[in-house]
Design a protein around this nucleic acid. Structure first.
Lengths: 135, 135
DNA sequence: GTTAGTAGTATACAAAAGGTTAGTAGTAAC
DNA sequence: GTTACTACTAACCTTTTGTATACTACTAAC
């Protein structure tokens, strides 16, 4: 596929606009990708997942997991034999198809953080809006 | 870099979590990537940009452009010689660094749309929540 | 002179997303 | 018996995001 450098055609532009729109529609928002990344470590239980991500409330995690399950990214395993009931979440094969997206985002974020830090060291103190998340 | 397939280590997980978090911090949200894609066609004026993206209000576009400018993704050219004043927006070189991210998202979105369409044709009618944006 | 276009801003409001607190029903440790 | 853990859910609140309408000040076409 042709890249997204300068000067794509209007047709290509609209096609990219639609495709990226579709992607953001299902994996957009603050938490979905983080949940998928966290489940890349292996299957996890609800509270374990909440702790590993950090900053997400139970309510939001619960809602996001439902949506991820609906879209086929996550599978919910309930072990009814144990008491109390144990629920484990795991990534599906379809979530693996996001590998390139996550890889590209992760690589870019790493580069961006390094760039911001360097700029800060050189004394280019900008407004906190331009900065990255805290260490 | 190691991919994001099954079974990454906790350390790798946290690193990805931070990097993807940094990326989402600056390019997350409904509009930022769309604006950058639209500017890949070439420099555009305010209303032209609004029309090309579709669905974005002037207020939101104005706010998003300010943020994108602060983060160095977009450059604002004002031609004071003309009357009325002409303002053109263009992508910076730094926005080009998002090439891989946009490419991966676009490719994934295209694949996802095809998958959903195929599932719909096979009669797997699911709730509209799982679907893609309208044609 | 009316209409439309330029690049926005002001105001007000609505909707969506996310956060806070508390609570359930059961178990198990101290 | 008190505390804590499990996997959530309900009610409520705040923040973010988006929408609608109107307005500026100037130009150009009809």
């Amino acid at each position: 596929m042709k890249g997204l450098g300068q000067n794509i055609t209007p047709k290509e532009c609209n096609s990219h606009l639609q495709s990226v729109g579709d992607a953001l529609y299902v994996i957009g928002g603050k938490w979905k990708l983080r949940i998928i990344i966290s489940l890349s470590e292996g299957r996890k239980r609800f509270n374990e997942l909440q702790r590993s991500i950090g900053g997400i409330s139970a309510r939001v995690l619960s809602n996001e997991l439902k949506e991820l399950e609906m879209n086929g990214f996550v599978h919910r395993n309930v072990h009814t034999d144990a008491t109390p009931v144990i629920v484990e979440y795991e990534r599906t094969d379809y979530a693996d198809s996001l590998r390139d997206v996550l890889g590209a985002l992760s690589a870019w974020g790493k580069m961006h953080r390094a760039r911001i830090k360097k700029a800060a060291e050189l004394g280019h103190a900008k407004s906190s809006n331009t900065l990255i998340t805290q260490d």
